[in-house]
Simulated scan of single mutants.
Amino acid sequence: MFGLSKKPVTILTGYLGSGKTTVLNELLKNTESDGIALIVNDMGSVNIDASLISKSNVTQADSKMIELTNGCICCTLQEAFMTQVEALAKDKHIKRIIVEASGISNPASIADGFLMYQESHKKLGFYLDSVVTVVDADRIYTEFLDGLKEKSDERQKEIIDEDPDIINLIMDQIEFCNVVLLNKCDLLPEDKKESVKKVIRQFQRKAEIVECVYGKVNPDRIFKGSKFDYDEVMNSSAMQAALAREKAMDEGCVDEYGISSFVYEEKRPFDHEKFSAFVEENYPENIIRAKGYIWFSDDDIHVQLFEQAGRNASISEVSNWVAAFDEKEKEEVIRSFPDIMEEWDEIYGDRLNQIVFIGKEIDKASITKMIDDCIDKVPYTATQPELVNKENKKIG
């Protein structure tokens, strides 16, 4: 009976300009506002989104709205956010909690926060009911499909100058959700709209895609539709599945729009200069999205995250390879996670270049050849530490 009394939480995410606040306003207009609590997160010191909601025609008398500013609920404000959700869930007058996340929020990090909070608080009065990503259909077409064709010099410059972190964030938001609200569908004819859906399906295989115009959507599609399942969402993302080495993608499969995907894997390190030249000078324009972990011969300590969307690419450090840990720390990790030894290499340890590519009419052989040419041809040598296998016996 306790489970039935838990309050559902809906996370509404989507990048700036996608129509998130408009969707929220429309949901409130067409839903019984009695018992709804709103949490609005904005990175600025003045919460513009909350102001728009307050000035709309939505009656706020029976709703409770909380503003979280000067931070993001997926990182700096995560603890404050979870505490606020818990407090709202204890209010007997509240039946549902809707969260409008900041445009720069990563929904995967928000969901991780829910899981961690759940582990440390056994009797929660709420649960993550759905993660809804609002997507600008016109923007996706322009920057990923139309972006592969010839266009004006001015539009080319806009795409090239776009911050790669922004483009990759938009893709992350699409990958990690159980509902995609495809907004601004009126800006595209049917054939282009269908091509956008096909692209989205390459990034997120199972999320329900709901078309809408001006943010108008039947609330039942959100509140009574598919439910959020963390493992299912993770596994249904083509990127996450491949990077988790589950190979869930149908490699070599080409859809009717010529969109295909493949996974590049190589244990040997990249030459930093060659790989950078490939990304900056010779990167195939018809690759829509790429994401993966790489390493360089001049830095065998750090795991580098490579991300590309449209015409933009970025490389950033995200962690250290286990093989680069000191002996004591390495043994502790292997003892706690013995499965790591299943793919442990005698020379490289857990170091691995693994990138997922999704593109339109891509030539796998040609791209693979270009990436292979970036591999450092000088044999890699490292003093290999004494390791411990699953039976805690020394090997190597």
Rank of each mutant, 00 (worst) to 15 (best):
A61D: 08
V40S: 04
A89S: 15
A241H: 10
Y127D: 04
F114T: 01
Q304H: 15
K393Q: 12
C185Q: 08
Y348L: 03
W321E: 00
L88M: 10
C185N: 03
R245M: 13
T22Q: 07
V263D: 00
K197W: 04
I288K: 00
M82L: 14
I98R: 00
K393T: 14
L352T: 01
M341I: 09
A241Q: 11
Q240D: 12
Y117E: 01
K122Y: 07
S56P: 10
T69Y: 07
D112F: 13
S56C: 05
A290F: 05
K328E: 12
T142Y: 09
K192A: 07
V322S: 04
F262A: 08
G3V: 10
D138F: 12
E256N: 11
I140W: 02
F325Q: 05
D62Q: 11
Y15E: 00
S130R: 04
A241G: 15
S276W: 03
A244T: 11
Q60P: 00
L128A: 07
K197Q: 11
L305E: 00
D376N: 15
E32P: 05
T383P: 06
T13N: 05
S366W: 07
F325L: 09
E67R: 09
W295R: 05
L38G: 03
P338D: 01
E317M: 07
E67F: 06
D250Q: 12
M43E: 13
K369A: 14
E154Q: 14
V378W: 02
E331W: 10
E26V: 08
M43T: 11
D165V: 10
C212P: 00
I209R: 03
